[in-house]
């Protein structure tokens, strides 16, 4: 008798997990309904509770520990051992005769390996994943540790591409367009140009890259547009136009690099041409004066 009700309770729970209501389950086992009902209601209550999630600090701390562990395993596996003893090697580390310096160097090395491991671990995460904040934090650190303005601009382009990949991943998973990621993708591409000084001799190469990135983004957006919810299509259309305009302007800039005004587009939407005599020499500020973004 007791085994019967235990089995019936389990069957009802499985049925509820498949979508049946408590009443539907009880209808099949009406003779046990009075016993089963309060237990099934309790199950429903427990399953409706919000689920706890670890804090971002805890996740970061765990990942750092994992990074340390990976680093430790890597170092251990790479240390050659001969007959139970470490082989004496002449290496870069022998340069440090002083233990303090050696410790400092080891700590710095470990820190770098941990950072690298954490970055790799979170590389494929998308918004909603617990590792995503770590990915963004790693990007910020990477950007802050980059001092060359050309490399900073390149990083911005990389981030823009990452946002696009994430937007596609989210779209594939949920069928919904993440407009925040779309905006960030456009913003990063904008900042690649606006926030950094590009040396004049590299300007046309960089313009080619930007043109390519914008054209690629436009293609991708055009491909996903038919599958996007009609209410979001206007946003996609605006983004497609923006990418197209940027790409065209960059192509033109590439071709006429020395003649285009950094003041941006004229009233017709075409790039303004500035006489060579008015151009600044040496490094060009592709900064806030560049009003190519609407």
């Amino acid at each position: 008798m007791e085994q019967d009700i235990e089995l019936l309770l389990d069957i009802c729970i499985e049925e509820m997990h498949k979508g049946k209501s408590i009443e539907e389950c009880l209808a099949e086992y009406s003779q046990y309904a009075s016993q089963l009902k309060p237990l099934l209601q309790l199950v429903e209550h427990i399953e409706a509770l919000p689920q706890p999630a670890p804090s971002t600090e805890a996740i970061s701390s765990t990942l750092i520990n994992i990074g340390k562990e990976i680093a430790q395993l890597t170092i251990t596996s790479e240390t050659p051992v001969v007959r139970g003893k470490k082989r004496k090697t002449i290496s870069f580390f022998n340069i440090f005769q002083k233990p303090k310096l050696m410790w400092a160097f080891s700590a710095a090395l470990l820190f770098l390996v941990v950072l690298f491991s954490a970055a790799t671990i979170s590389a494929n995460s998308v918004p909603g994943d617990i590792l995503y904040p770590l990915k963004l934090a790693t990007e910020k650190v990477k950007f802050l540790l980059t001092f060359d303005s050309e490399k900073k601009a390149e990083l911005r382009l990389t981030f823009s591409d990452k946002r696009l990949q994430e937007m596609i991943a989210v779209f594939r998973q949920s069928g919904k367009l993440d407009t925040t990621l779309l905006k960030e993708m456009l913003d990063e591409a904008k900042l690649a140009l606006e926030g950094n000084e590009i040396p004049t001799d590299k300007a046309s190469i960089f313009a080619a890259k930007l043109s390519h990135v914008n054209a690629y983004q436009k293609d991708v957006l055009e491909k996903i547009r038919p599958q996007v919810n009609p209410s979001s299509r206007q946003i996609v259309d605006e983004a497609i136009n923006m990418c197209d305009m940027r790409s065209r302007w960059m192509r033109r800039m590439m071709n006429e690099e020395n003649e285009i005004s950094p003041e941006g587009l004229d009233s017709t939407g075409s790039p303004q041409i500035m006489p060579r005599s008015k151009q600044k020499s040496n490094r060009r500020q592709w900064g806030p004066g560049c009003d190519w973004m609407r």
């Binding site: 996740i59 990976i70 790799t120 671990i121 979170s122 590389a123 494929n124 995460s125 590792l131």
Partner: peptide, 12 residues
């Protein structure tokens, strides 16, 4: 390491 990341992401 990427697989470790995915595994952590799912099981953590």
């Amino acid at each position: 390491t990427k697989a470790i990341g995915k595994l952590c992401d799912h099981f953590l």
